[in-house]
Design a protein around this nucleic acid. Structure first.
Lengths: 114, 114
DNA sequence: TAATTATATATAGATAGTCGATATATAACT
DNA sequence: AGTTATATATCGACTATCTATATATAATTA
């Protein structure tokens, strides 16, 4: 199912931090992972991800380091910081509050008198 | 709980159409109703709502009519169209797919090998 | 009665998140 | 040798939302 992109707005940061909670990861891999885990629903674009990563690093939510292998090219890995973990926890709480509130409005009966 | 506004992005149209599914309503009342139903979580701003209503009307999702009362001022009521009802149904499906996908990513274990 | 607050609608400019397009570079494949 | 996949980056555009401002009337308060 195709989902209106604007709905996804705002949750990307949370999802990226969630990926990093488990493993350090580089940008390109995040795109693939998000696609895989979401079963092709979230197809994050490079033009969205990289500026977002730079922004999160600037805010000290993540840290980067470059890892080199002999036969591999250098990749820029990101690691979630203590601050980033706290932030993720907050975002998850907000997310839960948000969906329960939307569902309240969607599911609830409207007693309005107008 | 205070929720990051950017998370809410995209669901406003759906929530407005949901309100209109039950009753015809005027703009100002929608703001109040959304605040009441969401228990003060969604505080939609007039500067957001009115352009959104104009946009929905232009797309034939809603229709407006002015209702006058002797001792009351004139209010601009909105009514959901057949097209708007179909659209709302779609938005709800997207919404459900969206939250289940986010939760899949948030809750799931990460088997990634990097 | 005058001033203020609540109701009601509207628009302009700013900001944030995302996208498509484009650029660059290297590894792998044909 | 040329193309495709991998990997990172930036720019300009678009959309949704916000704040601020404007206007007008009804209701309340000083």
């Amino acid at each position: 199912m195709k989902i209106d992109k604007s709905l996804i707005s705002g949750s990307t940061t949370m999802l990226i931090l969630k990926l990093l909670e488990t493993n350090d990861m580089y940008g390109y891999k995040m795109i693939e992972e998000l696609e895989r885990l979401s079963e092709n629903v979230f197809t994050l674009k490079a033009g969205t991800l990289y500026p977002l990563l730079h922004n999160l690093e600037q805010k000290n939510m993540i840290e980067s380091y470059t890892k080199l292998s002999e036969n591999e090219r250098s990749r820029k890995y990101y690691k979630i910081t203590r601050q980033g973990q706290t932030f993720l926890k907050e975002k998850k709480s907000e997310w839960n509050a948000y969906i329960s509130t939307v569902n309240k409005v969607l599911g609830g009966f409207n007693y309005a008198i107008n």
